[in-house]
Simulated assay, not measured.
Amino acid sequence: MRSPRSLAVTATALAVSAVLGLSACSSTADTASDDTATAEGYPITIEHALGTTTLTEKPERVATVQWENQEVPLALGVVPVGMAAANFGDDDGDGILPWVAEKLDELGGEAPVLFDETDGIDFEAVADTNPDVILAAYSGLTQEDYDTLSEIAPVVGYPDAPWATSWRDSIKFNSMGMGMAEEGEQLVADIEQEVSDSVAEYPQLEGKATMFLTHIDPTDLSEVNFYTGFDTRGAFFEDLGLATPQSVADASEDNSFSGTVSAEQVDVFSDVDILVTYGDDETIALLQGDPLLSQVPAIKNGAIVALPDSSPLGTAANPTPLAISWVLDEYVALLAAAADKAL
């Protein structure tokens, strides 16, 4: 028996297909045969984990789903016709993260439609924006989501696994989906140079083994939950000249994005120089006051970066094309201050 969500998605797909069928009939009648000639450089074929996407001409109307993907077109000077509303780190509640708002103000033009994804992809809202392409290189789309979206427009999915796309691959795949692969390559190079310049000011960061704890439950410190090297937060440490602790690397061998170790086995993290987590000074005091967790060198030495929970700074620790520049200097300075406390 199919689930209610499955039936709802199927109904939405049928409705979307009907709308698209009517518009296709109209556009076909108005299009001369000469216009079917393939534009220079097209078709473009993009292989990804959810299928193969083919673009026959450069998209003009770009829509994005899930929370990061709008940053690539914006960084390349294109305002999406629609994008997902932010539901984490949105300090003023307008559905737009501050670095995205700054770019939208800079570019001007018509404001994007904000898709409410609280309960999943809003397929009808996406279809209403009449996109030529839908970007989702960093996302958690299911195959069913992808198939339904593909009824609306060509969709660029993630290259390997859900929520695992690096900021470089996010730019690479989404820029290809816009017919702007070369511009995407230049954007990657520009960000890499910016990161390199910022990190160069803090030589004490070089090689420091750094670990990212997940959200800490102050009522239960019996387990240590952390992000592995497959999570984008942990992977970004290497861009900043930091190192992945061997203990975390060992925990990453099964390709999972997070791991858990009993507090009684916390000595496995004796190789951690710096610890990053979500929280504040109270979180740091809580960790240092725990008889087991305080044995971790980073905690014992106070080499901790506590990022305000659900804040723009905390959100930006997960590197994205626009957030990196927005948070870089502050984040690197916080890490350097922690590195000064590491032995």
Rank of each mutant, 00 (worst) to 15 (best):
Q295S: 15
L286Y: 05
V305F: 06
A285S: 14
G302L: 10
A303I: 06
D309K: 14
L293H: 08
V296D: 06
V296K: 05
D281V: 12
S294N: 14
V296S: 07
V296E: 07
P291W: 08
L286F: 03
V305P: 03
A298F: 02
V305K: 06
G289T: 11
P308Y: 09
G314C: 02
A285P: 04
A306I: 01
P312R: 11
I284P: 02
D281F: 09
P297Q: 11
G314M: 01
A285W: 04
V305L: 09
L286T: 12
G302N: 10
L293V: 12
L287D: 06
A298G: 05
Q288I: 03
T283C: 09
L293I: 14
D309A: 15
V296N: 05
P297I: 07
V296L: 12
Q288Y: 02
Q288F: 01
G289D: 11
D281Q: 15
A298C: 05
D309I: 13
A285Q: 14
D281C: 11
A298D: 04
G314W: 01
G314I: 00
I299C: 05
E282N: 14
P308L: 12
T283Q: 09
I299V: 15
L286A: 04
Q295Y: 07
P291D: 14
D290G: 02
L292G: 00
S310E: 15
A285R: 14
A303G: 09
S294A: 15
L307F: 08
D281W: 08
D309R: 13
P308A: 11
A298M: 06
V296C: 09
L313I: 13
A306Y: 01
A285F: 03
K300Q: 14
L313N: 12
T283W: 08
P291F: 07
L286G: 06
V305I: 11
A298L: 05
A303F: 04
A298E: 04
D281R: 13
D309T: 15
L292R: 07
P312C: 11
D281I: 06
D281S: 15
Q288G: 12
L307R: 02
P291N: 10
G289L: 10
G314R: 01
L292M: 13
A285T: 13
Q288N: 03
G289M: 10
K300L: 02
I304A: 00
G314S: 03
